[in-house]
Simulated assay, not measured.
Amino acid sequence: MLRQPNPRLCRQFHATRTAAIASRRGPVGPPKTKDRGPESKEDTQTDFAAMNVLGNTPAPTTAIDACAHDGFALNSGLKIAGSGVMLVGGDAFNWKPWIREGRKEGTIGEGATGDDNKGVSSVGGTLRNTKGQWEVAEHSWGLLDAVWPKPDLLILGTGPSILPVSPETRKHISDLGIRLEVADTRNAASQFNLLATERGVQQVAAALIPIGWKEGTY
């Protein structure tokens, strides 16, 4: 047989008073100050600045200081204009992979798109295949074919935005025994600066297209 609860033993809970107090105080806002008390004088505090093991390491001379519309400025003071750049073994090289084999940069008479009478107007190159993938001819990697020892990692900057790299280009670089990382040129330059400082320019190389690159009109 079920027993009925004794009303005198039941506790009543009401939130009315609490809600009224909260409404008078207004909404809870952010703290007015971030001060958590006096500065600690303990000698066991962590100095995060001292944990930066690369803080006093000089950047390599081939580090990218700035990405310009049509070139780059390097830490050494060298400025590259009208060209991409390949950074290998601590040296910088002009790099124009958009010029196909059998095609020359310059006027129409040389196989390019510049006007013969008015001078050069465009190299008229392309870096995309018919599928929209980033692809260049194998001879564009001639420097990596010749250099020894080869870098462990190649950071590829594909221009103003990141593009998928074609399987043929990936395979060629992989056959050289080099790993490939792909990013837009700004991020690729930052990644190269960090990794080249950390691991050395013999281990990390970069191939960068200017951020102002446009298909067929650069």
Rank of each mutant, 00 (worst) to 15 (best):
T62L: 01
P30H: 09
R25P: 03
P58R: 01
A66D: 14
C67I: 01
S23A: 10
N75Y: 06
T62Q: 03
D47F: 02
N52A: 12
P38R: 03
G29H: 10
F48C: 06
A63C: 07
A63P: 00
R36K: 07
P27W: 09
I21D: 11
V28W: 03
K41W: 14
N75W: 04
T33P: 01
V28M: 13
S40W: 05
H14V: 04
H69V: 13
R36P: 00
E42V: 06
R24D: 12
T57I: 01
R24W: 08
A59P: 02
S40K: 05
R24F: 06
G26H: 03
A73N: 07
R25D: 13
F13M: 14
A73M: 07
R17T: 13
P31V: 00
P60C: 02
A68W: 13
P58K: 00
A68G: 15
D47K: 06
D43K: 05
R25N: 15
S23K: 09
A66Q: 12
R17L: 12
N52K: 00
T33Q: 11
A63V: 01
H69P: 09
H14G: 07
D43C: 01
G29N: 06
T18G: 08
T46V: 14
L74W: 02
F48S: 08
T44C: 15
Q12T: 14
A50Q: 15
N56M: 09
G37C: 02
G29Q: 12
D65A: 06
Q45S: 11
G37S: 03
F72D: 04
T44F: 14
A59G: 04
K34M: 13
D65W: 00
A68N: 13
S23N: 13
G37D: 01
C67L: 13
A19C: 11
Q12H: 07
T18M: 05
C67N: 09
Q12E: 12
P60H: 03
R24H: 10
R25T: 09
